[in-house]
Amino acid sequence: MISLPDDEASQQALFKRWLDLHSGLIYKVARTFAPDEVDRDDLAQEILLQLWRSLPRFQGLAKESTWIYRVALNTALAWHRGEKKRRSTQTSLPAIEELPEPDDRAARERSDQVTRLYTAVRKLPKVDAALVLLYLDDLSYREMADVLGISETNVGVKLNRARKTLASLMKEVPHE
């Protein structure tokens, strides 16, 4: 049962909960749309700020992850359009910490595949990149349609095309 953020305390509690449960999602969006580490921190901060601002509007009608994806992708696409105005005027918040991967063969292979996926996804057009991001995180067509504001049929058509492009891009990306 979702408690709606009708007062300051419940908004704070919900925000903390989102951070605990969905920080990976924010990280993935930031890493996809900002390849550079400094930019990634900046974008993650911007997403967190927009997420905080979105709290009073969250009605609990959409799934939390759908809502967070909406905020994160909107912010990432707007940020990508060159609105990096906050960085120059505000203090940097070290938002992202890269933890060491377990040092076994399987983990290294997985990490290599993830790095290659990021490289390939970044080469896609922005909307396709957003769509592939949702696909890789296993969202249903309905959820993707909710995030993007388009029909499920449209999601199907675009995703099919984006996956084909991703597959050919993955062939071009070398292994580390």
Partner: peptide
């Protein structure tokens, strides 16, 4: 395979403040 790899990255790389 891509999905598995992608979804496996959450715990090691995240926002940890």
């Amino acid at each position: 395979e891509w999905k598995k790899a992608w979804q496996s990255q959450s715990p090691p790389q995240r926002l940890t403040l």
